[in-house]
Each structure stands twice: as C-alpha cells, then as structure tokens.
C-alpha cells in the first residue's frame, strides 16, 4: 500500500523520461510540484478548477488537468510536460499556422493535440472538437489552432 502521513515525504515522479525526487505534502497538486519543485513552468496555473486546460500534462499518454491530480497519486505514472516535447511536429504546426498569440494556453493545447494525434491519427472533426473542448484560449485564436491541429492529425494519418 502506498501511503503518506501528514508530514512531507519524498516521492519519485517520472517526468519527460527522467526520474525526480520531490518532497510533497499529500495536498500538493501535480501542478504545484511540477512548477515549484521541478521548475517545469510550461503547465500554467489558471482556473485550478478543471475548466481551462492551461495546466494540461500527459499521464501515461492521456491528457489530464494537472490542477486536478495530487502529486502523490501520480508517482506510478509516466508524465510528460511541454518541456519534454521539444521540436515536435505539432509545435511547428502552431508556428506555421500562427496559432499563438500571448501563448499562455499554447502548452496545454499542444500536449492535448500531441496525445490526440498519437491516439487517433485519423481523427474526425467531431473527435478533434471533443478533445479540444478541454482547452480555452483567452486570446480566442481558435480558428488558427484548429488549422494547426488539423494539419498535424491529417499529416500523421497519412504517414
């Protein structure tokens, strides 16, 4: 049985292919620990309520809101943050399609889209929309984001 008392405990998180020891309270969210102990600030803190998707990370390949996970429950998962996705096709697609304005939502969108392209290389528009509903863009650049996402999903589907 995994357990953690009320005091801080050292746990191991597996992030972007590396293992890191971090010291957590049970009440620390995954978002807290990624940003504050591992310096992985790509996951953004915004609503902390599951509404905006700015904090998206991949847990065993699935996009989740890191604000709604405890760090302690994530220690048996393989985590990926935007810092682990350097030079990927979806990042280039966002550049090519001008899908970035202030950039605050971008890491979340990119990780979500990366997971989508991996799981559904031939995703229909309906599936793309279903997945992308998890992320909000305050700058409202949805059309460009949609085009970037479609270009990558189509490209990987044709590969």
């Amino acid at each position: 049985m995994i357990s953690n008392g009320k005091s801080k405990t050292v746990i191991e998180l597996h992030v972007n292919g590396d293992s890191h020891e971090v010291m957590v309270r049970s009440g620390d969210t995954l978002l807290d620990i990624l940003r504050e102990q591992l310096g992985l600030s790509g996951a953004k803190r915004s609503c902390e309520n599951g509404d905006c998707g700015a904090c998206t990370v991949l847990a065993d390949g699935k996009p989740i809101h890191s604000c709604l996970s405890l760090a302690i429950e994530s220690c048996d998962q393989s985590l990926m943050t935007i810092e682990g996705l350097m030079g990927s096709p979806i990042q280039q697609a966002f550049v090519d399609n001008w899908a970035i304005q202030c950039g605050f939502c971008t890491p979340g969108f990119i990780l979500n889209c990366h997971a989508l392209a991996t799981e559904h290389p031939n995703a229909s528009d309906e599936v793309i929309e279903e997945w992308m509903c998890s992320n909000l863009c305050r700058c409202t650049g949805y059309q460009e984001i949609k085009e970037a996402v479609q270009s990558v999903v189509r490209a990987s589907g044709n590969a």
């Binding site: 049985m1 995994i2 357990s3 009320k6 005091s7 309270r25 049970s26 009440g27 969210t29």
Partner: peptide, 21 residues
C-alpha cells in the same frame, strides 16, 4: 494546493481498504 494537511492511503486490496478505514 490544498490548504490543509491530510494522510493519503492507496490500498492494493479490498481488505486493505476496509482495514485502513
């Protein structure tokens, strides 16, 4: 961040969960 401290248990069996409770 959750503002209060609590203990966290992740049992591996039903019996362990019941016993922990």
């Amino acid at each position: 961040m959750i503002p209060f401290d609590f203990e966290y248990y992740k049992p591996a069996t039903v019996a362990e969960a019941c016993e922990t409770y």
